[in-house]
Design a protein around this nucleic acid. Structure first.
Lengths: 301, 301
DNA sequence: AATAAATAGGACGATTTGGACGATTTGTTA
DNA sequence: TAACAAATCGTCCAAATCGTCCTATTTATT
């Protein structure tokens, strides 16, 4: 009875902007396929609705309202997801990539898992192919853009069901570095963990992070490191920032593939170099997230 | 049905003071976009109607009649919007910014207007304050991130009601340049104009654009120029790209605040340096959407 | 002024839509 | 398991919309 792939007539009618009676008639006339419960209630397969809307020129108000999972019952397999995502990114299929990434949310996978087990492998593989000269930078850029866009869509989704009163976390990608994707993933992980992330984006000077510490008074600071050109200068600047944060009692989480073991050994705490799952755990140790149980009849969504 | 986004032909005809038949004809002629129910009833998006009204400068518009709740008092004023957006960005109020940017679409403003009259002034003002040292880079970065996020949300919205069969346009920001915002706005403008934009993002080598030309066979290439460090090298690389595109018969649109008059004078076609409205016009000349034809007897014969 | 082409708008029967109604089903809570 | 509230059912009917045909108006050319 937990099959989320089904939607009711009322849900569809709201999403398509027509009356409930009309939906019922469409089903009865065979325009919309539907199953019936023993009691006679119509159960529409979301996939059918979406297909008909796309194939014909149906009105469509807000299909996002029909959020429940499209993956009827099938267990989410991160490995397969990652492979599918890789294929979609490789061929520049934006809508497929977006669908896959959003399905992660619908399927109840954690954001940290999405990052570590789905997106990271896919992007790493694309990066590898680029280094081997099997694809152009163009493909890599296109993949990054599509990924970024899909992640923003997902964030928008998480944001819509977020509660108030969240501790602030500030972070970004230090100066000289452009890879914004990792920082976006951190945003998602923190958002899911009940935080209010403020992403300063790529190429942000260390001084700006320090400014943000005093002005925004976050309870966590994160840094994504993609590659370190000059370790000495980097370490010096980082230590200064770290001292600042330490004085204010603000923990620092730093990670990314640019964070080599050599580097890590020389840095004061706290790294999440082994993946965003580490960061998620660390963050939730700072701010244990209260769990809610949905109450009452409304099964809507 | 008092659902918010859709209106009927009769409602529009009353609000605009024209006959119902006329509205129907406009829809049938493609002047006014509309969806169809399976039964054949037209469903017009309020935003599309407002866009038409705004652009054709209707003499008598009783739009308050259409949706009092949506337009309550707020005659969309780009100047005010821009000021409000500036304030939201300045204070890091992401949800306010997102609301403002989405309200532009609800109110029927064109994407090009959003870019030229709302976002550009707000971001320019923030950039100015930064140069004058009145705010930190942090604020500028935060504003950019918030803007970017809101624009992605808007794009996602436009995408959900897009049709198939769109010509492809490819573009991005050339190497050495990081300001991705402008390219995002181009994406929106093209999307609204019926294109399928492929954004290669910031810091894309010229060679990649050329690769994209042969591989994706776009019908338009766009470049966003934020700042040119070495004009000579830039011009050389650009000319090479332009020649490639020209050979394939692909028009090139180039613009951005880095495109000074000096530079422009030395470049082969087609610039949109004066704003995205220019780009929108240019793009729609390549892929014309149905417009109101001039009345009377056609010229010549 | 006369003319042709294109748009505007009213009228018609036929079709579609959506709200209202009491009866029934469904999922959660006691 | 019983009780309950929310959601859905089927049916009926008024209102809205459809497509078509016909005529009036506007506009640019002759």
């Amino acid at each position: 009875m937990d099959d989320l792939a089904y939607v009711s007539t009322a849900q569809v009618s709201r999403a398509l902007g027509v009356g409930v009676t009309t939906i019922k008639r469409w089903v009865d006339d065979g325009i919309l396929p539907a199953h019936r419960t023993p009691g006679g209630h119509r159960k529409l397969l979301l996939a059918d609705v979406l297909r008909l809307v796309r194939e014909n020129d149906f009105p469509q108000l807000d299909l996002a309202r029909l959020r429940p999972s499209l993956l009827s019952g099938s267990v989410l397999d991160e490995t397969k997801l990652s492979r599918d995502l890789y294929a979609a990114l490789r061929h520049g299929d934006a809508s497929a990539a977006r669908f896959l990434i959003e399905s992660v949310d619908r399927g109840g996978l954690r954001a940290a898992t999405l990052a570590d087990a789905v997106i990271a492998p896919a992007m790493r593989r694309i990066g590898l192919e680029w280094e081997e000269g099997r694809i152009d930078v163009m493909h890599e850029h296109r993949a990054t853009q599509i990924c970024s866009e899909s992640l923003y869509a997902l964030k928008s989704h998480l944001l819509s069901q977020a509660v108030q009163e969240r501790p602030v976390a500030v972070g970004g990608v230090p100066e000289g570095q452009l890879h914004a994707l990792a920082s976006q993933l951190v945003e998602l992980v923190l958002l899911e963990g009940g935080w209010s992330p403020v992403n300063l984006g790529p190429n942000t000077p260390f001084s700006s992070f320090r400014k943000a510490l005093t002005e925004l008074r976050p309870r966590l600071l994160w840094l994504s490191i993609h590659r370190v050109e000059e370790p000495a200068a980097f370490l010096a600047a980082y230590r200064e920032l770290y001292d600042d944060a330490h004085k204010s009692g603000i923990p620092v989480a730093i990670g990314g593939q640019g964070l080599t073991d050599d580097l890590r050994a020389l840095m004061p705490y706290t790294t999440y170099g082994d993946g965003l799952s580490h960061l998620a755990d660390f963050a939730s140790s700072l701010h244990p997230r209260p769990r809610r149980r949905p109450r009452g009849r409304p099964h809507g969504t």
